[in-house]
Amino acid sequence: MEILIALLIGVLFSVATYLLLTKSLLRIVLGTVLLSHGAHLLILTMGGLGQGAAPLLGQEAGSYTDPLPQALILTAIVISFGMTALLLVLTYRTYKAHQTDDLDQLRGRLDE
């Protein structure tokens, strides 16, 4: 299971890298979204995909799953959600102001 998820993370990261290196604003936003998905899954996997009982509810089980990575991911997901929303608005405004979503044309100079 861990290997499968690790492969998935690899795919997410490579697709995200590809998207980040494209020239269209929206694709870059999607790239950051996939990148953060990959990072979140990585946290989950790195804690070990345990199969024990839920922690704190009882004391009989032989093993418990680690609750911390899930708490971390929850926080990280909320943060990346907010960031993505802000980035989308910023992208939209940039597109409106410049009438282009091509980063080559958004290269720009200081004196304008």
Partner: peptide, 24 residues
């Protein structure tokens, strides 16, 4: 707007790597 887009993307990538490092 144009420059802050680059700033935001750069920092979001760095933040994703922060999470990766924390995970490791």
């Amino acid at each position: 707007l144009r420059e802050s887009f680059k700033y935001v993307v750069m920092n979001m990538v760095a933040s994703a790597f922060f999470l990766v490092a924390v995970a490791y």
